[in-house]
Simulated assay, not measured.
Amino acid sequence: MTERMRERRTDDEFRLLDNRRRANSHKIGRRNNEFKIEENKRRADAHKIERQNDELKIEENKRKAEALKIERQNDEFKTEENKRRAKAHKIERQNDEFKTQENERRLKSLKIKREEEEYKEEERRRNASRMRMSRDKYENNFHLMKLNYESKIKEGPTHICSCCGGLWFEYSIRELTIEMLTNKGLKKEFIDNVCYLKNTIVKLCVTCRKDIMLNKVPNLCLSNGLAFYEVPDCLKILTELEERLISPRIPFMVIRTLGFCKQFGLKG
């Protein structure tokens, strides 16, 4: 029977049909999980026996390496494989024993490499470059922080709080709208009372904002009678001498030393 089949398979057409029939039969058979598991085990055992042959093992490794090299020319495949390897390596390093062994292996490998003068010199250059970059980054950050601080100080406290009328730096003021304040549960009458300076954008300092959010009128609120009277238009055009002439009170103050403590005070 075997010889007869062998003779018949010398015919290319018959061999092609026979191979197709076998492939279909095998495909149907592998739908059965038991058959599939048994076949996989059989293949694994056969492959394990074959790999005991060093020549076959080397050839197979070369073939796999060449196939992988061709596949890694595809950027998508390369990226996916790197992710998969990194993930698998991360899982493996959760095992303390594996982690310790890998660290020891790396140390030994590094120790062997450091025996070479070229590698040692290259490592020194790399470390020096890394330190220089870190130092430059720190210096640049410090320089930017210094410039930012100087610009803010130079600008001065020019932002006016809508509640107390005080002058503040930009970072000490928070801009809000009437709608935002009402959404926080504050009544319209209360907002109109505490926001003495009427503007579209309400600017509040830290102290005033804290009291207002607690539904309290701040102590330094201008609506508590702390607002200056408006200067009439006829007085705005006066010179300093004319202001002195019509002023009901002319303050005379001098700077004097306060005892032996080297401090100074105003008197008058």
Results as ranks from 00 to 15, higher is better:
21 R>H: 05
23 A>L: 14
24 N>A: 12
24 N>K: 11
27 K>I: 05
28 I>A: 13
28 I>F: 10
30 R>Q: 11
36 K>S: 11
40 N>V: 01
42 R>W: 06
42 R>M: 08
43 R>E: 11
44 A>R: 14
47 H>F: 15
50 E>G: 10
51 R>N: 13
51 R>I: 10
52 Q>M: 06
52 Q>F: 00
52 Q>D: 02
53 N>A: 00
53 N>L: 00
55 E>N: 12
55 E>S: 09
55 E>A: 08
56 L>S: 07
57 K>M: 05
57 K>T: 01
57 K>D: 06
58 I>W: 01
59 E>K: 14
67 A>W: 10
67 A>V: 12
68 L>T: 02
74 N>K: 07
75 D>E: 14
78 K>N: 13
79 T>Y: 03
80 E>I: 08
81 E>W: 00
82 N>R: 10
84 R>V: 06
84 R>L: 12
84 R>G: 04
88 A>K: 05
89 H>Q: 14
91 I>K: 05
91 I>L: 09
92 E>P: 00
93 R>Y: 03
93 R>S: 06
94 Q>W: 03
96 D>T: 12
98 F>D: 08
100 T>D: 09
101 Q>M: 06
101 Q>S: 02
102 E>V: 07
102 E>Q: 13
104 E>R: 11
105 R>Q: 04
105 R>H: 08
107 L>F: 02
109 S>K: 02
115 E>A: 09
